[in-house]
Each structure stands twice: as C-alpha cells, then as structure tokens.
C-alpha cells in the first residue's frame, strides 16, 4: 500500500524468475513481458526490504517461508489479461474448419461454451468471427459463457469496452460491430444477443448444466490456477459435457499431459486442440 517505484529486472534474473513461475504454474513469460513482472512484483519486493530481484529469487528458493511466498508470487502474476481475438488462430480454426465440417456432416445445432469468459471478449470474438464467416445461415450456433466472478460477468453483459480490449483487432471489425462513444466502445446488440452469460464455478460438477451438451469448449489460461486434482476434476467435467468428437481449446502454454489421456491431441498448425475420443 505504501507507494513505491519500479525495480528493474536484469536479464539473468528475468530468466530465472520466468523459469520458477513456469515450473510452478505452467505460465510462460516471454522477454516482451518483462515489464509486466517488474510492474507487478516491485512493490512486493520492497515490502520484503529487498532492492533487487536476485535477493527475491533467493528468498523464493531458500527461505523457510518460500512455500507461502510462492503463493503470493503466483497471485500477483496471474491477473488475467483478456482482449478481443486473443490467440486468434484457435478461433479461426473453429470457425473456418471445425464448424463447416460439422455442418457438412449434417449437424444443424451447434453449441459453444466459453467456460471462463472473464469480461466477455472471448465469447464475443467467437460470435463476431462466426458472423463474419456467413456460416450462421447454415446452422444455429449457441454460445454460452460463464465465469465465477459476478463483477466481470456484469461488464460482459454490458458489452462496453475500452481501447485496451482491442489490442489485436482490425479497425474494419471495430467499426462494424462497435459504436464509439467518447472513449467507450459499445458492442452492437446483434452480437450481444448471440451470447448467454451465467455464473459458474468450474470445480462444481454442475457448472455445465446450463449448456447441456457442448460441441466446443474454450477454457484458456485458467487451468494454470488449479492444482492437479482440481485440474482433473475440471477436465473430467469438460469431457462429460462434450459431445462425441467435441473440441477442447486450452491456452497455448497449457497441456493435458499428466492430467488425462482421454483426449486426442491435434496440432492444426496455429496451435493445439484436444478432441474427445
């Protein structure tokens, strides 16, 4: 709470800290995200009276309180960042490949579940890409979106965003689907109405009851917050919710390795997708 400046992270310190975070959470920080670690951890380091990241790294490695500190560290670095069209290759694959194939096999009702939707950028991105593809005239697609945090759900339902949510979005799409009002971008009702939001805790096996059977589930950059038994529980629930040959999309640094082998892994070039066998 006491105001403090930023401590600079040296290259070797960055590598070691990124390695520690990766080993304990599966989250990778590339060198372009160095500033993020500086911004988020400087205050904590000063609270401990240290003035370098190196001393903090030794604290994490050798202090008697290291286990406790690891939790503090992970909480500080895992604040979830989301924006429109994040990890877009997966969404392109869903819209341009997975869904057309389902339709060609005669499917006319398709359900997609964004299981940890935060402020809504992910389900709305899928809705926008579906709309753009023209596929909606050939089948009915329902998008469900859930999160445990009611505050973010409120924002999602409002459908109002700021520039920071658009860090990878072509202006043509912004102009087509958002109305700019000062510094606020309001999502058009036609996209808003395509998504149904509800509150759910993924650890709860009833989390998918509103969805019923899903054909594709997105759950990206969330499993990293769970320990292995919890991960297994969530993945098991996803497995039961998915229809046969259904698709599960995880964040690109996440894996089902050592959690389950009931999914088939497929590399489509722009990333990995897991298919229910």
């Amino acid at each position: 709470m006491i105001n403090a400046g930023t401590i600079k992270l040296k290259d070797d310190e960055f590598a070691e800290l990124a390695d520690i975070i990766y080993k304990h959470s599966g989250i990778t920080f590339s060198a372009t995200k160095k500033y993020l670690l500086e911004n988020r951890l400087s205050r904590r380091i000063q609270e401990l009276n240290f003035n370098s990241f190196k001393d903090y790294i030794y604290y994490l490695k050798y202090d008697v309180k290291k286990m406790q500190e690891m939790i503090t560290l992970l909480n500080l670095v895992t604040i979830n960042e989301t924006y429109f069209l994040r990890e877009r290759p997966q969404m392109d694959y869903l819209v341009n490949k997975v869904i057309p194939e389902m339709i060609s096999k005669g499917k006319r009702n398709i359900k997609i579940w964004s299981a940890a939707c935060s402020t809504g950028e992910e389900p709305y991105s899928i809705a926008i890409l579906l709309k753009e593809s023209g596929i909606l005239s050939k089948a009915r697609v329902d998008i469900f979106a859930s999160d445990i945090n009611t505050e973010v759900l409120e924002t999602a339902q409002k459908g109002e965003y700021r520039t920071v949510s658009f860090r990878g979005v072509p202006p043509t799409i912004i102009n087509k689907y958002f109305e700019k009002d000062g510094f606020i971008y309001k999502l058009s009702p036609e996209i808003k109405n395509m998504v149904t939001f509800y509150k759910a805790n993924l650890i709860d096996r009833m989390a998918s009851s509103r969805v019923g059977m899903a054909d594709a589930i997105f759950c990206r950059n969330v499993l990293i917050y769970f320990d292995i038994p919890a991960k297994q529980k969530v993945i098991d629930m996803f497995y039961k919710t998915l229809a046969k040959d259904g698709f599960l999309f995880l964040g690109h640094s996440e894996t089902l390795n050592k959690i389950t082998d009931s999914f088939k892994m497929h590399n489509f070039g722009g990333g990995i997708v897991y298919i229910k066998e």
Binding site: L85, R86, R167, G168, H252
Partner: peptide
C-alpha cells in the same frame, strides 16, 4: 509497436527470440 496478435504468432512459431522488439 507489435500488436499482441502479432506477438502471439511469433510466440507460437517459437520465433520471438529471433527478433529485437
């Protein structure tokens, strides 16, 4: 001035370390 979407493409293809950004 790379957008996140471009950084991600470089990241997924493991080419990020090749470039000065």
């Amino acid at each position: 001035n790379l957008k996140e979407s471009v950084i991600q493409v470089l990241e997924i293809t493991n080419l990020l370390p090749q470039f000065t950004i």
